[in-house]
Design a protein around this nucleic acid. Structure first.
Lengths: 162, 162
DNA sequence: GAGTACTTACTCGGATAGACGCTGTCCGAGTTACACAGG
DNA sequence: CCTGTGTAACTCGGACAGCGTCTATCCGAGTAAGTACTC
């Protein structure tokens, strides 16, 4: 059970978009070039973000994507769920109903105890992702990344932002 | 990103094995019949449990599996990791190194900030699974399952235990 | 009655095949900004 | 200078193929318990 690489890409792209000046857009091409990933496949991830209403898109030249809300209001969970979907990581097929001793009249009350425990862990994972916003990520990045690299990167991005 | 159905099967099988009297074995065939799943494929899940040293196996007639430790010392995480592996659910491909502005001399210090956050959530998931033992599961099951069904099931199992 | 060979039932591992999702590429339709030509 | 047309750049969506993983099945090798058979 491993998350798609699109999740990684989407998170990195959101980071870049969060650093964009208000109202500016950045194209898929620029994002793909910056991260060294295939443009056409990256566009799938961005489409997922767009469908989830996390980013706005514009057509035409100097078009592209921008965050639809402030970075402080977008959590990691938002991005992960946009790409991976909101379904739980554990699905219960209710195999307990195959128990040969089970009377046909018997009707289960509530979900399987095993499923409940698995879903609880799933919720813990989501809660952890929900607690971190893009703004918080950028704050730690600003501390970790050398100033020169940070500046040259935002300059690179700005030159391509429409 | 969805867990294999083998995880569900393994958890249910461990529950049955945990209810077995000390030293008794239960065969793959009986476990498969009880849960209504294909015997040969279920055996893969049980082999994973065996490789992870969660269960002991015996060959020959009246052979099968039993827990290798008390149910109170086996957590959900043990079972899940036995089947799914211990790898983290998020893999960092370090695409930050593709940044065109990055000087070649520059060497990253420590893992990517995005990966760290994803791994923290992964750890929260695992911690939640680690906190629940098979013994605790059985305790809740005893409360929820009707006494008659509980008894007839353990009788069914005992008749097939070697 | 004691010892030995045989049968049976099971685990374990490898080989195999289909279904499905992920990865990655390609192309066409639609949209917008900009440049350019004509009045 | 203004208007209209054309072009370029981009998003979006669908179609498609390759690949690995998950699901599922089958078979053979090895092992242990029980049974029959021999001395």
């Amino acid at each position: 059970m491993i998350l798609k690489s699109q999740v990684e890409w989407a998170l990195h792209c959101c980071t870049i978009l969060a650093g964009l000046p208000n109202g500016r857009y950045l194209s898929t091409k620029a994002l793909a070039e910056f991260h060294g990933v295939p443009k056409e496949y990256l566009s799938k991830a961005l489409q997922s973000l767009s469908q989830a209403k996390l980013v706005d898109s514009t057509l035409g030249p100097s078009g592209g994507y921008r965050l639809s809300r402030p970075a402080a209001e977008i959590s990691f969970l938002d991005v992960v769920e946009a790409v991976e979907g909101k379904e739980r990581t554990f699905v219960c097929n209710n195999i307990r109903t195959n128990n040969p001793c089970r009377p046909k009249s018997y009707c289960e009350a509530g979900p399987c105890a095993i499923a409940r425990i698995m879903w609880e862990a799933d919720e813990a994972w989501r809660a952890s992702l929900r607690s971190v916003t893009l703004a918080a990520l950028i704050q730690t990045l600003e501390k970790e990344i050398p100033v020169t690299l940070w500046q040259s990167s935002s300059e690179w991005v700005l030159n391509r932002a429409g």
